[in-house]
């Protein structure tokens, strides 16, 4: 059994960048820096609050795309904060 560290744990004071970096590998399948399109938008260098708001919108199914609803369905608030913090550090181009 692997050591299950960090993911899903609550009450972390600061966003967990390492967790964000791991979770982000799921996003890079579709989202590349510098390759944003109308169908697959940019997720890099966004304000953390903007990123988090959009992800929660998909998680709550207020935003429509089923691919993103599916991805967001299992993300905790800490996961979203970690992803937002990580992607904020990566240049959009």
């Amino acid at each position: 059994m692997l050591g299950m560290l960090g993911a899903g744990s609550s009450a972390q004071a600061a966003a967990d960048l390492e967790l964000g970096r791991y979770l982000a590998t799921e996003c890079t399948t579709c989202h590349r820096p510098g390759a944003a399109t109308a169908a697959i938008p940019n997720i890099y260098s966004l304000a953390e609050s903007t990123f988090a708001e959009v992800m929660k919108g998909y998680r709550d199914k207020r935003l429509a795309n089923p691919v993103m609803q599916n991805i967001a369905s299992r993300l905790s608030d800490d996961d979203i904060a970690a992803l937002a913090a990580f992607f904020a550090t990566v240049k959009a181009n």
Binding site: L2, M4, L5, G8, E18, L19, Y22, L23, E26
Partner: peptide, 23 residues
Amino acid sequence: AKVAAMVIRAELTGARAFPARYS
């Protein structure tokens, strides 16, 4: 592949391991 790469790095370099997630 991303899950396997994470596990391999954890075992060989001591990098943190995370729960497997697939999509």
